[in-house]
């Protein structure tokens, strides 16, 4: 299991190759979230962020048969099309990998202490949390 909160860009193929070489892995699902439309600055709560991500990964492990998992979330200045977040999940079969990947993203969006500030033509503004994100996390309960 790997959790990283970093400024630097990540590389999907490198992260997939870095998953444990366990021969029981038969499925790898991944998700990348990236910046849409406008540049932004991502702030986070150092310490709590890593703790929250680890707790979310633990929940996923308790619900699905996961063999390995990687969560990388960036912070700092990001521009349109820059990747923000990466989730990679490895399991024996695709069902667990797909479900856990979606669960991790839904929970991350409502539980991990990150905040986006967009640079719009009218000036900088904090992105407001969406009710749809809360509903997406709620459906796993």
């Amino acid at each position: 299991m790997k959790i990283s909160v970093q400024r630097e860009e990540f590389d999907l193929s490198r992260e997939v190759k870095a998953l444990s070489g366990n021969p029981k892995i038969g499925a790898v699902a991944s998700f990348i979230g990236q910046v849409r439309d406008v540049a932004m600055t991502l702030e986070h709560y150092p310490g709590m962020t890593e703790k929250a991500l680890a707790a979310i990964v633990e929940q996923a492990k308790s619900r699905w048969q996961l063999i390995d998992c990687t969560v990388i979330h960036r912070f700092g200045e990001l521009k349109p099309t820059d990747p923000i977040v990466l989730v990679v999940v490895a399991s024996a079969h695709r069902g667990d990998a797909f479900a856990a990947c979606e669960f991790l993203m839904d929970y991350l969006k409502t539980q991990a202490p990150f905040w986006k500030k967009e640079q719009t033509p009218d000036g900088a503004r904090w992105v407001e949390a969406k009710a749809a994100d809360d509903q997406a996390a709620e459906r796993w309960k």
Binding site: L42, Y45, M105, L108, T110, A112, P113, W115, W126
Partner: peptide, 10 residues
Amino acid sequence: VAFFPPVTGG
């Protein structure tokens, strides 16, 4: 103790 707005990562 920390105070902050609803989170908007991901």
